[in-house]
Design a protein around this nucleic acid. Structure first.
Lengths: 340, 340
DNA sequence: TTTTGAATTTGCAACGTTTCAAATTTATTT
DNA sequence: AAATAAATTTGAAACGTTGCAAATTCAAAA
């Protein structure tokens, strides 16, 4: 019956409760040394009892700080390559989001997820900067020369990227060491006596395409194996395209006896396609792939590979942006992860 | 060189530019009939030219409206059932997010994704209500008696759910018609001459477990088939558990000749397990499953089933919350989707 | 005591917006 | 031309917060 006061407490109500001034309460809650220790304790207690939560809009209006980190979506993150409800993306998007969530959970930051724009990849980033709607940004699918990054640097918006660039700009990133992966993949195939390796590349516009290729070639040089790369189909291609590519491979005169996959979604279609061409895994060829999910481990146990921990990537990226916001220089926020 | 005025335009600057009062500008931009049409046009133009964007913090502080929709994460959404980087979830999470994004793109709403709390499922929802940090909420993994829903109704926070409840409370939901699916699944199996059906249930605490079971039993009754349900393992179980369950099934004296899967992540492990027990799909048994991804269609073409459009679910849910916010009664915001 | 200075607290303004009552302008009627 | 009504515009207050200069309190020094 009796309305339970109904409105949530503000600095003003705390001031009334404690008999202090509003600005005293404000400073006390932020532990300013200007305020007597005794007072600070008293205010904290009162705030606690009243269930006080600072009003984000008030803070934001006054300070300009939004306490928001925005994750910019990419068209393909959700469902690798335009085929819908695809489960080959190895939970990339979900896990990144969960990781970011984890890391942000005990900070004051909220995570906003913003849509992409097919027609203009710059649009989301520009919006964020222009409206100042976030204190920091996380982007993925990084390209060697990425206009989004140039733009954010110019407008000094703190950010971290999943993947690197080649622009001579220092920035925070978390990247998997795909060069090391590709190199080690070739080595392992060599150890198993394989001679000719087919590399199925990542999408060519992305930076890690280059790294993968470099590692691959280095591996070939070191082991003396021969090989070639396939970039007509990529993880962004359709599944049927991949299967067909596998079949085509099997029919070549110089068919490979080893395959490297740079995307989880490639594994099963390729094995199927090669199988259509009478090439059996473990028998006629070996396959190294990354990332490798538990499902693949179960249904295709002969595939050699490791999983990529996207959740960890998310956590690291979130921590990086926060550090950038707090002024940590980008040079110290660069992680090259290799599980090998 | 010359600082380009540097600050983004506000109502005040527009007022100065146009020579009008601040409140005139404010009302003009919101197309208030109190303001002369001529003036409205003039203001709109000026706003456009100056690149004016309303300050969200200002609006929120003044009106209490956050222009935020929050999606509450569930522990399992990202990676079905605790095994990490799992790709059996059929892109559920990613696609829901993309769908919501789509729908929200041409509204003033931002999408915030908030972490779950394993220890207290109510925590996220309570936080949102207490701090008024969103105008509307979307939740999933709905349970027959779901305390989150009771709480949001009591505190009249607009929301929409993925899945239904059994609480006698009307609320906005989008649900797949799992009863219809299960019933139709039995029918199809019957048409193929199958006699004994094993149903692999959804997690028992979720509402659609009940619907699935109802449909299943109705199907059995209509066709005269026999069957049983397995709920010791579910889509939240591990992959190896599923494989083992498949094997165990094959070894039973009364082994089934038909299987229904209620989660994409079950399909391959079960087929594998049954195969271990020398039961071949298409031969010794048929399988109906949902949702079925392109990958499954490709590598297990004998599986009968349909895909569930989570992206559409996301879009619908977003539209529903917005409608709820605008006052549409919940009874008219209830969608039972069946693609059969 | 009174003075001085440090320690502590506080009121005011401002951030950008909307609402509302009041002021101003314009058109209509007498 | 004056009076009235209608249409249009506007200033002030408020939302909750923080920063700052000013005010108050208190203890130490003269």
């Amino acid at each position: 019956m009796a309305e339970n006061s109904e409105k949530r407490p503000t600095l003003r109500s705390l001031a009334e409760i404690t008999g202090l001034g509003i600005s005293t309460v404000s400073q006390a809650l932020r532990d300013s040394p200007d305020i007597a220790l005794e007072t600070r304790k008293r205010v904290r207690l009162a705030a606690q009892q009243a269930g006080y939560r600072p009003n984000r809009a008030g803070v934001r209006l006054r300070t300009g700080k939004s306490n928001v980190i925005t994750l910019v979506l990419n068209p393909q993150d959700g469902n690798s390559g335009g085929f819908s409800n695809q489960d080959g993306s190895s939970g990339f998007f979900a896990n990144i989001v969960y990781g970011i969530s984890d890391a942000l959970a005990n900070t004051s930051y909220h995570l906003v997820v913003t849509p992409y724009s097919l027609s203009d990849p710059m649009a989301p980033v520009r919006y964020i900067v222009e409206t100042n709607s976030a204190d920091g940004v996380i982007i993925s699918r990084t390209q060697p020369d990425d206009p989004r990054i140039r733009y954010m640097v110019e407008n000094n918006m703190p950010f971290a990227t999943h993947g690197r660039t080649n622009m001579g700009i220092e920035h925070a990133y978390f990247d998997y060491d795909n060069a090391a992966f590709a190199r080690e993949a070739v080595r392992r195939l060599s150890q198993r006596g394989r001679k000719r390796v087919a590399l199925f590349c990542p999408p060519p516009m992305l930076t890690y395409y280059l790294h993968t290729l470099q590692g691959f070639e280095r591996g070939l040089a070191e082991t003396g194996l021969t090989g070639f790369s396939v970039s007509t189909v990529s993880s962004d291609s359709g599944l049927e395209g991949l299967r067909a590519a596998g079949l085509e491979l099997a029919h070549r005169r110089d068919a490979p006896d080893a395959v490297i996959c740079t995307s989880a979604s490639m594994v099963q279609p390729l094995i199927l396609g090669l199988g259509n061409g009478n090439m059996e895994i473990g028998q006629d060829f070996d396959m190294v792939a990354k990332p490798i999910s538990n499902l693949i481990k179960l249904v295709q146990p002969k595939v050699i590979g490791i999983d990529e921990d996207f959740r960890k990537a998310g956590r690291e990226l979130a921590n990086m942006v926060v550090a950038r916001i707090e002024g940590t220089p980008p040079e110290t926020l660069q992680v090259l992860d290799s599980s090998y």
